[in-house]
Write a protein that binds this DNA or RNA. Sequence first.
DNA 1: TAGGCCATCTGGTCCT
DNA 2: AGGACCAGATGGCCTA
Length: 171
Amino acid sequence: MKTKNRPPRRRAPVQDTEGTPDGSLRPARAAAGAPGEGRRRRPGPSGPGGRRDSSIQRRLESNERERQRMHKLNNAFQALREVIPHVRADKKLSKIETLTLAKNYIKSLTATILTMSSSRLPGLEGPGPKLYQHYQQQQQVAGGALGATEAQPQGHLQRYSTQIHSFREGT
DNA sequence: TAGGCCATCTGGTCCT
DNA sequence: AGGACCAGATGGCCTA
């Protein structure tokens, strides 16, 4: 794990570079993607000479919207980080770590709830057994490919604990 | 220096 | 038609 708290970086917007002659806003960008795939750059409408101003303007607006969209996504990631407990405060989780940890945290909470609610008090009929049955049904529907550990509530808690431990160790 | 993570740009596709 | 969403490409920053 190498992710550290870093100041937010902002790449110099290419539109601030006064634009390249062809209006292709990025310098030296190779043709995209694997051969045969559909994400190739199209040449400008008037050849190497460049795009129309209106086309450039639309592209810049689109870029800005995409930036805002990604910022919202990152805000959501940050909000998620803040509700995952037991993580070292000085260490910022990466996105993939955040998602993985959140998934296992949810599963461990589910397991805890199920464990508590399935232990009936003597002589009382509560919702516990039904909840547990519902959970088991969901697991069968959604998790046919799950391993034995994954299918057990205790497995979720164990996995989450293991993950938390590894984050604490900084591994 | 290599590798991981990230922000940004970009064009294609989907949706309203 | 226009915006949202998606994914590939690129380059910067950081750590081991």
